[in-house]
Design a protein around this nucleic acid. Sequence first.
DNA 1: TATGAAATAGAAAACGATTACTATATACAA
DNA 2: TTGTATATAGTAATCGTTTTCTATTTCATA
Lengths: 337, 337
Amino acid sequence: MDLKNVTMKDIAKYTGVSTATVSRVLNDNYPVNIETKKKVLKAIEELNYEPNLVAKNLRSRKSNLVAIIVADIKNPYYVSIAKEIDDFLFEEGYNLITCSTDESLEKEATIIRLLLSKHIDGIVIAPSDSGKSNLTGLIEQQVPIVLVDRKTNDLSIPFVGTSNFKEAYNLTEYLINKGHEKIAVLTGKLNTSTGKERLEGFKMAMANYGLVVDETWIFNGDFDEKQAYEELSRFLKSNKDLPTALVSCNNLMTKGTILALNEENINIPEDISIVSFGAMENQELFTTRITCIEQDTRFMGRKVAELLLAQLKNKQKLKSIIVESTFIEGNSVKEWN
Amino acid sequence: MDLKNVTMKDIAKYTGVSTATVSRVLNDNYPVNIETKKKVLKAIEELNYEPNLVAKNLRSRKSNLVAIIVADIKNPYYVSIAKEIDDFLFEEGYNLITCSTDESLEKEATIIRLLLSKHIDGIVIAPSDSGKSNLTGLIEQQVPIVLVDRKTNDLSIPFVGTSNFKEAYNLTEYLINKGHEKIAVLTGKLNTSTGKERLEGFKMAMANYGLVVDETWIFNGDFDEKQAYEELSRFLKSNKDLPTALVSCNNLMTKGTILALNEENINIPEDISIVSFGAMENQELFTTRITCIEQDTRFMGRKVAELLLAQLKNKQKLKSIIVESTFIEGNSVKEWN
DNA sequence: TATGAAATAGAAAACGATTACTATATACAA
DNA sequence: TTGTATATAGTAATCGTTTTCTATTTCATA
């Protein structure tokens, strides 16, 4: 039809009513004569009117925009969570913006500042650092927040995540029960709750079974595939005395680990056993299926959306949720005697 | 600081100038006395002013929002493209909204209508149907569009994609060169350009080598893992006469294929050879590494962003781009004599 | 010294919706 | 008949910017 956008003013002029009346017909929040209403609706149909949400948002001080901020939105783990949130919120008229921080606190701050300017209605975030928080601005502006995967020290913010300590403990215990004693760990970023808690779970399991943790077998992988690969490669090239098993603290690092081991012709599980916190994409088709903890990302996403919607609609904070994970046994662990 | 947002009016009052002047300082598009400028900037700093982008957008009729609409944003292929676009556009002050249509034309229409209401600045789309187009509204409103992966019949819209015909031809020829004659094909959605062209490439290769295409060996997988799995399972359960090779027309369907074959204890490549249009996540770690065409998604994403930015900034349509793919040889094809 | 251009800045009108006021007409109860 | 509640609808303010006018001052040039 028209190149120019049809506005309420056009509808008002066309039907001979005021824009107020048009607005009332549209929002159905005020009595309007049935005949008038019909006339207006007909005009809306005929002129093909579509509301300008930007104007609406300015007036109502909302944006119908929600953002999810994670380290790397390409990680299938976050992709799946984000998709679920998106599906859920789309029904409620929200759009989801996905943002990656690449684990940089500064980039996180920049993103949040931009989102605040856009009058973002809500934020889902896995913070880059559990301590130094970029969330104060959001909290001041009373923007609803839901923490996903990673917590901050501020416990008043609703959170959806995994029992990192427990699951890491279990993974380690599984290795111990298979007879392993010389166990290494590939840690995530230790300034995140997940990184810290998983390492603690590992250490606690070792301690409870009276096993010593060799400090040189604590590898720092920063939750990153490349970093994990390099850290491990360096170790393998300069050490002949290997641990018999390794706990990797996330899916990306597990990939890096496998690649590093493959390159050095070290076989899983013959030469070294591997367990992973977090599943890998298509892992059921791998030559070596890694024994792992798999998180129910779709359920997590749904819960995140619920916690966010509760705040968005009823200004009501629901309680945090710890989602149960599944233990998946592959063929990456050898019985050791 | 304040709970309420600081606006230009506050800055104006604080410094004793008009909002017009504040705006001019901020946008640096009009001469302002150096002292006044300093004063204003100081006030902005002190009061911690952040512009309200919603208001700005209303006035300027833009949103700094760009959307990518694909069938399924969980598909790593699209994830990777989207991430690249996002990175690129973020630098320019745009945010990316990701939308999945689940291959539904109606959902696509709904999404586009919503995005138009939000005054979306640009759209990247892999249309659900190459014929019946939901793009007319966007074109009328002169919203910049870039087609990615899939084309429409309207050739005036910039496009970034793969040479589907050629690559499908090559994949098929590869099988033929390995001695295969009884070759099946698992097609994508035939109302998309990619679905159609890949099938045509397959057929042309068969024809050029004088091979007959058995109609019952053309499986319709709709680009969907589950659909492909079911289609193939049904066939396998009721047929003992198998083709010696199969061409799968996308990564998701290849996964479905492998699962169906695994379930029936049909081995790749011993019992049947497989080639795939599109790579699978972590495929280098598979027991059977599928021989495939891998698309350079990062390069594609970058090109898409460039084509979009050219329209966004200079109102200039650049030429469509066909991105070269890589042939990756796995161990999923058996030599046949 | 006159004059036109450039520098400088405020008032007010947009952008397109919502909503607080205000006003009238109608219906119903007392 | 009067009073009051409700239905109905327009006017104008508002959300927070940008930008068009309009107006003054300053300055270089003829």
